[in-house]
Amino acid sequence: MKILHETVQTIPRLPFKYYEHDPLTDINVAPHWHQGIELNYLVSGTTLKFVTDGQTNEYRPGDLWTTNRRVVHSASGPTEVDWVEFGLIIDDDFLQTQIPASANWQLTLNGAASSKTHPQAYADVRQQLVTIHDLLTTPTTDLLRLQILSYFYQLLVTLGQTFTVPLTATGPLSIK
């Protein structure tokens, strides 16, 4: 099985790639990796199998999860399901410039378990991500870009304060 490197193209003048599952395509995503941190939200569908560094997690509608930088991951689920799923891939250069300590972040946002452990922060991340999603449906003006960034920065703060642990010297292996 070939593992691909995804070159992430950010939205012009925004420090992330936004993606939304195309309902006309398969939900299955081949193993790949990228430099940036990924934040996913499964709005509706059924159980989605998400493999990260060989470990399979199952996510259900309403679940949020992150994928750490340079980690091989893939997704699979039934093809006949009406999936609604979207998320962001955060530009790593931007993140490390704004938050140098993020170079040592190991993200821990992992679906229902995180929702139970940190219900308010989990709800905050969901609301921030949904608001960004909604704002991106209109043409981006300078003021709208600032509004999107205000939610994006708050999302980074919430992730950093609640859903990270420092990497250890013997932490997970990753592709560089």
Rank of each mutant, 00 (worst) to 15 (best):
W33A: 03
R69M: 11
G54L: 05
V71N: 12
D91Y: 11
K49S: 09
L64G: 00
D22P: 01
P31N: 02
P23K: 10
D63F: 06
V81M: 05
D82W: 01
N40W: 09
D92E: 12
P61W: 00
T67S: 04
W83L: 05
T46V: 04
W33R: 12
Q55A: 12
D93H: 12
G62W: 04
K49T: 09
R60F: 11
H73V: 07
N28G: 10
T66H: 01
K49F: 12
L48M: 05
Q55L: 13
G54I: 11
W83K: 04
R70P: 03
D92C: 10
G54M: 10
Y59V: 02
G45R: 01
N68E: 08
R70C: 09
N40L: 04
Q55Y: 15
G45H: 00
E80V: 07
L64P: 00
V51S: 08
T52K: 13
T25K: 15
D53Q: 14
D22K: 07
P61C: 00
A75H: 08
N28Q: 11
N57C: 02
A30K: 13
N40R: 09
L39M: 09
T66N: 05
E85A: 14
G45V: 01
I27G: 05
D22C: 06
P23V: 07
V51W: 03
E80N: 14
V29M: 12
L42T: 01
D92L: 15
V43E: 02
E38W: 00
G62K: 03
D91W: 06
H34I: 08
R70H: 14
P31M: 03
L42A: 01
I89E: 03
Q35M: 10
D22F: 03
S76E: 15
E80W: 13
R70K: 14
I27S: 05
G45F: 00
D91N: 14
V71D: 06
R60G: 02
P78M: 11
H73L: 10
K49A: 13
S76W: 12
L64W: 01
F86T: 04
G36R: 10
V81A: 04
E38P: 04
T46P: 00
T67E: 07
S74Y: 04
K49W: 12
W33V: 04
E58M: 05
N68R: 08
W65Q: 11
V51H: 05
I89D: 06
T79F: 09
T46C: 01
F50Q: 07
D91I: 05
D91L: 10
D53E: 15
L39T: 10
I90L: 13
E85Q: 14
N40C: 13
H34A: 09
G45L: 01
H34P: 06
T52N: 12
P23L: 06
A75D: 04
V81H: 03
T56Q: 08
R69D: 11
Y59C: 02
T67V: 15
S76T: 13
